[in-house]
């Protein structure tokens, strides 16, 4: 999670308007669901990967790392559909493409959503959802709080290991959790004092610097989506 967050904050597309990134990612997602898996989903997967790697300059290792877990999950699901256990033991089903098609669709849809996740910090997405202020504030506070808590957790783990503890024992994990809770509460209390000092009234209103979408870039995205759809139709 911290790796995704770092990439989203440091990426080349960080400052691009959300509308542009959302149009590209959700447009590719829609194409992944609408177009035939071959060649549509494959083209969508290639376009999403290319946009992330070449456009947003997401490091290839980071992209693969983020893609690997859902891809493995999808592959495992597909494998279960492709093989069957019968009287002759393990065998391939008569129509293995039945499993491959949804797997391709799922991989393409994952790559499309990953493009959004790797180029847009989570708070920007939360704000765009236009949740009720209380929920949005809670989500943002949790997001911010989580990183502090992770730092604390790492420090406590390091302290345990420095004294030859930790290393996966249930007792160490229990001690860690027990120590983390009061620290989290204490930290939340201090955050409350810090916010109160700046006249906190119950809502976390701030000024965001959201740039306006560029008509030229929006047109380029629309052309790319049309090219993917056209390419899929031509190849088919």
């Amino acid at each position: 999670m911290t790796a995704l967050d770092r990439i989203a904050h440091a990426g080349r597309w960080r400052r691009l308007p959300l509308a542009e990134k959302a149009l590209l990612a959700l447009g590719l997602l829609a194409l992944a669901l609408i177009l035939p898996p071959w060649p549509g989903a494959v083209l969508v997967l290639a376009a999403a990967a290319l946009a992330a790697l070449a456009g947003a300059r997401v490091p290839p290792g980071a992209w693969l790392g983020a893609f690997a877990a859902p891809a493995a999950f999808i592959a495992t699901g597909a494998l279960a559909l492709v093989v069957t256990w019968g009287e002759d033991g393990l065998a391939l089903v008569a129509e293995p493409l039945v499993a491959v098609r949804p797997a391709l669709r799922a991989l393409a849809a994952t790559a499309a959503l990953l493009l959004l996740a790797l180029t847009t910090p989570a708070p920007v997405l939360v704000k765009a959802l236009r949740l009720p202020p209380e929920l949005a504030d809670l989500a943002l506070a949790l997001y911010r709080f989580l990183f502090g808590l992770l730092d604390t957790l790492r420090a406590m783990q390091a302290a345990q290991q420095a004294r030859l503890g930790g290393a996966g024992s249930i007792r160490s994990a229990g001690l860690l959790a027990a120590a983390l809770l009061p620290r989290a509460l204490e930290r939340a209390r201090r955050l409350e004092i810090g916010l109160a000092a700046r006249l906190h009234t119950g809502t976390l209103d701030t000024l965001a610097a959201e740039p306006a979408p560029s008509p030229r870039r929006l047109a380029a995205i629309a052309i790319l989506l049309a090219a993917v759809a056209g390419g899929a139709a031509w190849l088919q």
Partner: peptide, 15 residues
């Protein structure tokens, strides 16, 4: 960290 809560520095200082 007891004071900073927003998504960016600009947003935090605007609070």
């Amino acid at each position: 960290d007891d004071q900073l809560f927003a998504a960016t520095v600009f947003e935090d200082v605007s609070f």
